[in-house]
Design a protein around this nucleic acid. Sequence first.
RNA 1: GGGCGAUUAGCUCAGUUGGUAGAGCAUCGGUCUUACAAACCGAGGGUCAUAGGUCCGAGUCCUAUAUCGCCCACCA
Length: 889
Amino acid sequence: MEIPKTYEPKEIEAKWYPIWESKGYFTAQAKSDKPAFCISIPPPNVTGYLHMGHALQHTLMDTLTRWRRMKGYNALWLPGTDHAGISTQIVVEKRLWEQEKIKAKDLGREEFERRVWQWKEHAGGTIQRQIRKEGASCDWTRERFTLDEGLSHAVREVFVRLYEEGLIYRGAYMVNWCPKDQTALSDLEAPKKEVKAKLYHISYPVKDSDEKIIVATTRPETMLGDTGVAIHPNDERYKAYHGKHAVLPLVGREIPFVCDELVEMDFGTGVVKVTPAHDPNDFKMGLTHNLAQINVIDKFGKMTEDAGPEFAGLDRFAARKLVIEKLEAQGLLVKIEDYTHKVGHCQRCDTVLEPLISTQWFAIMKGMAQEAIKAVQDGRTQFIPENWTKVFYDWLENIQDWCISRQLWWGHRIPAWYCSSNHINVARETPSTCSTCGSTELRQDEDVLDTWFSSALWPFSTLGWPAQTDDLKTFYPTSEMITGFDIIFFWVARMMMMGLKFMGDVPFRRVYITGLVRVDGEKMSKMKGNVVDPLDVFERYGTDAVRFTLASSVTGGTDVDLQEVKKKVGGQEIREYPKMEAARNFANKIWNASRFMFMNLGDTEFNNSPFENASRYDYWILSRLNRAIDDISSGLEQFRFFDVTQTLYRFFWNDFCDWYIELSKPVVTAKETTPEVVAARQRVMYILEKSFRLLHPVMPYITEELWQRLPHKGESISIAEFPVSDQSQINDQIEDQMRSVIALITKIRNVRSEMNLPAHEPLTVKLGIKEEALQKVVQESEDAIKRLAKVKEIEIKPDLEIEKFAARAVITGIEISIPLEGLIDLDKERDRLSKELAKIEAEIEKLSESLANPNFVERAQPKIVEQSRNRIADLTSQRETVKANLANL
RNA sequence: GGGCGAUUAGCUCAGUUGGUAGAGCAUCGGUCUUACAAACCGAGGGUCAUAGGUCCGAGUCCUAUAUCGCCCACCA
């Protein structure tokens, strides 16, 4: 069979995915006797592109899904996309403007919606194609989109039920308003950012008095809407003002002093101006003290008529300047300080948000939040790593009502209709008459729901809810949720609440929270130019290699850091990723080990139990294999992806390639095909085949390709059984024995290298081995030692006599002498032995210190004490040997 | 202001009931040994951030401190 010398992933990857998909390997059964396993994908933006964060999470999800599928689960990885309200709408609006100079408003709602669908059809599908490239074993027959008919149905059902229960209400409250995007936002979409600003101290005259009080504000323009001045009820300094009024400068309005505990006496002067219409705190105080709400800023961020003729129409920031100028002119500006504080910004467009009072829909989350907390407390859902649990609790404990309406056109329209008398009709189906007054003139609410509202239903809406489908019965609760910490509140918490509310059970059993993918410790950003495009690196290193890299970078849920090395090639800068190179090399190693086997296979048939009457090293690799199976399985169970990949790497490269293949070579490559030779080939094939299956969840493409080339019949490794370990094949004794053989070979090589001996000159080696069993082991491994350490003659005795011109070494249980008449450099040998002696003595000293301590001997575990004694005995004998050899030089 | 995480070899990171510090990459030396130079063989390199404490014994547990990073919060 022709097989190239290096692994070329491109064609192989392109070949397999369509086969997997068309054969239906990833299609789960709605009803099955097998245990169910399900992961719902965190739906990416329908018009989005794959980034490294997806690649990371999808790799983990795919690895887990493939593993479970191979273990015989009815495994479902359910894919889909999110309509992503604001961001999609913004993208389409921008395109319309750039390409056609049309504003959305001019198109009208229906036409605009049609255009977005059009754009979705056109640009959509990209992300799905890219997910396929990752090798993701999603069940595309069950793909969902949040604006699907089915999901929209679920959204409506949930909205109506919550409304009927009084958990959704409509009202005029203060919300975060984005003057650019023209919509309300939830608190989560309004991250606070530190801003360098000024703190303006303004003096307000007290009515019927010559006194003035000083207030401090970062937003002087809002003073035009002040309707009160607040002080702390216990503040002695201002007791005299209780019940009095201040006269608002520039406006002349008389505004009352109010007492409120929200005021911090220690901050500034302890006096706060109160603008109920433009600050969340002031809004609350306004309600408490019945203060008027005067809107002086509109939804575009411009001053209103109520701000007065001089200010009306001005931008809020221009108004700020003008207010300051005027106050200064009147001598009412006391001072301006530099001040750094946090200001809410739009998550999408970074515009400084304006707190505004507006009529919106809200969901009351407190009760549901408590249920979600309980579900985690009693272990129905588990966070991994565990420390996210606390973050989750803290947020839910302090949850506020969720503003769920958005002033957008792209999304699930709120199922509320108003008659001409503004009676509210919330209904599953479009009503024809008002349920309150019977009016037939109904208009639907213009707003849509927050994107996250539909996402919150994702784990059950995608399985067919509210219909009681087989899918829903089989796969809910889903098994694992894998996502980033950045959407724990946006999404995970809300799924928990909605799942518990509407399904009566948690949406998933475990949540694995991943970190961020960084480059050289930095967040990726277009500005920095350090964005890594997954498709680009798939192309350059192979998808399997990138997957392996990502999986191996996942440790305790901490961030994944890709190192980057910049190289100039022909004046062009190329960015390389050493970890990916290493993983590519690993893939190449797998390729070449397989190549070795295929080259020597002939017409050898596959044998499921080729380990009858085999050699020690055969049983050794079998033991190593079974140990690896255990480690990999428990690692996958516990999301310990680093351990999984490391075990795969070490088992395959170090144990299998470096030792087993080398040890097997003479038999496997023999020209004559005796039954022993056939058996040896079958053993290599057996180990290799199991290795492919172990590797497959992480590296699906290369393993499928190679597995298919094996002589046995199997449809696809995707649906092959994941190896199960056989404890009876794990053999500590044999592993110990092989450790000695390996140590011996390594030591001889080491001496050769250290003594600068010719690389190819076969050596004669004398070994002093007292223990009979070990003697036997070494004797039986003579051929291997000769070949792998380049030795022509081995002599084994219980003790070695002193010899003048020889390099001497010692390992546990074995004394080594390599006669080097004429080749030896005595000074060099003396140096080498002295160093060795120093090492041994240092260890002896450490051990004897603890053994000399009676407390250690009494209190330490007996096992540990015994180990120390054995070790020290071994070291002491080694020391004597080295000393004697040194003295003889 | 609260909370969380990190600090181990030049770099990136492992280190699961406390019991002689590990890997990959990089470095140095040697090899085309017919699977693989994207390879093989060998070597060097760490007072585990600092200071205390518990313990026979601490990278691992406790308490402070420092530096970095992240999250949450209604001091205008």
